[in-house]
Design a protein around this nucleic acid. Structure first.
Lengths: 236, 236
DNA sequence: CAATCACTTCGATGGCGATCGAAGTATCGG
DNA sequence: CCGATACTTCGATCGCCATCGAAGTGATTG
């Protein structure tokens, strides 16, 4: 049972707070420099360098050198899935928090990038709206786009996302650790996020995974996708 | 960003070799006593006790006391998914092994329990056979049973597994770390394993997750499900 | 070429946690 | 009751690793 040791090794890698912080920062889907990641994890550049070396050696991160910068990014979708699952387990394990959320926390809960797709309250609203209208079906095991959904999304300029696959379009539901409900992940989730971004409906916070929908975005969700999400309940 | 620390905590818990060994042993889906888990992890009862305390406190394991025994089991399907994903990441990260597999390794690769469903070569054969015959569809994002599959499985006494759900039957594909291909996990995978077990088609190894299909099982896979898996290629 | 910047390597330190022996607490069998 | 068993708690030890200062490499700028 050689494999157990490898499992433990991966666990230990994500088990250090500094490394977890680095990985979390990279979950915004962008590539970051070593210095920036050191700042995010509140450690010195030397320490970050050793951590990043370990993560790259374990194939959790990939790196490209550009001049005197080295840009790190998450190496594979499997790593994204691992971090998502870890977050879900950690959220379940944590008793519901009574702490007053900070401003950035509030934005993060509202909407954020989860590597390549959107997460947070808005993403959950989108998913449940699609589900209620039988455009998609999903439970905690998987999800797919229905026939009605295919027509609906094709009408709205997403035929590229739909057409480039041979089989039925399945997607992965991702348990949101802030909402404890599912949103749409996987390839379709990524395509959807790209589409909404191309429409200019939201802005990304520069140093954060948080995303802020602007007025056009709010209106667009209503007009194009018939999703109403103005009545955000106050954070508990 | 409180959540990062919780993620790191979970990672650190599965990051210790002894604890990873305990969790792996519990992935057979059964409940085990503290002493047995200590033996599996090659540590003393005292050390195991402290590890188990941590795992229970973190809600990764649940425990029931029965007389002077305490039976531990995995607390939630989310933990199963976490360990599966960790195994997949660890398998990708590991270069293909040239090590000669031991006897128990060979049995494990052939077929084993992955908590509540079957994994290993046989499980991959079953899944790909179903997929080829368009009884199920799946990719790395999700899976579902087709209309033809519904009829097929209902004909073979699996209507209980099929009937008890309202919506379409989606299942979770699980990347097999020995075969690096997908097999059927989730609720349907569990139902399928129960069905094959009830038919008496395989025996479970007493101290292992390994499963050995007997002659009736081999024949049954052929006769009932039209799955041919005699020609197991020699292990590399 | 000199200065600066991004990053790495080296070396030393310090702390945390995994481990086990010994002792303590429950439970079962007779 | 007594001994045996399953398990826990306590305490001490020991090794590993995260951290950072200092120094080194390589790239960019002026």
């Amino acid at each position: 049972m050689e494999n157990i040791l490898n499992v433990a090794e991966i666990g230990a890698l994500v088990g250090d707070p500094a490394r977890a912080c680095i990985l979390s920062a990279l979950m915004d889907g962008r590539a970051h420099t070593a210095k920036e990641l050191a700042y995010r994890a509140r450690i010195t550049a030397q320490t970050a360098s050793s951590h990043l070396k370990l993560l790259v050696n374990a194939n959790l991160l990939s790196v490209v050198s550009q001049g005197r910068h080295r840009y790190f990014r998450i190496a594979s979708p499997l790593v994204v899935q691992l971090l998502e699952t870890l977050g879900a387990v950690a959220a379940i394990q944590t008793p519901p928090r009574q702490r007053r959320p900070s401003r950035v926390d509030t934005a993060m809960r509202e909407c954020r990038y989860c590597y390549d797709h959107l997460a947070g309250w808005v993403a959950v609203q989108i998913a449940s709206s699609f589900q209620q209208r039988h455009l998609v079906e999903f439970n905690d095991e998987g999800g797919l786009i229905t026939g009605a959904g295919m027509a609906f999304f094709a009408d709205r300029g997403l035929e590229n996302a739909l057409g480039k696959r041979g089989n039925r379009i399945l997607f992965r539901p991702c348990l949101d650790w802030t909402e404890r409900r599912y949103h749409i992940a996987g390839q379709f989730g990524a395509d959807l996020a790209v589409d909404l971004a191309n429409r200019g409906w939201f802005e990304r916070c520069p140093q954060s995974r948080a995303v802020i929908f602007n007025a056009a975005g709010r209106a667009g969700l209503k007009d194009v996708f018939d999703i109403e999400c103005e009545d955000r309940p106050a954070a508990a």
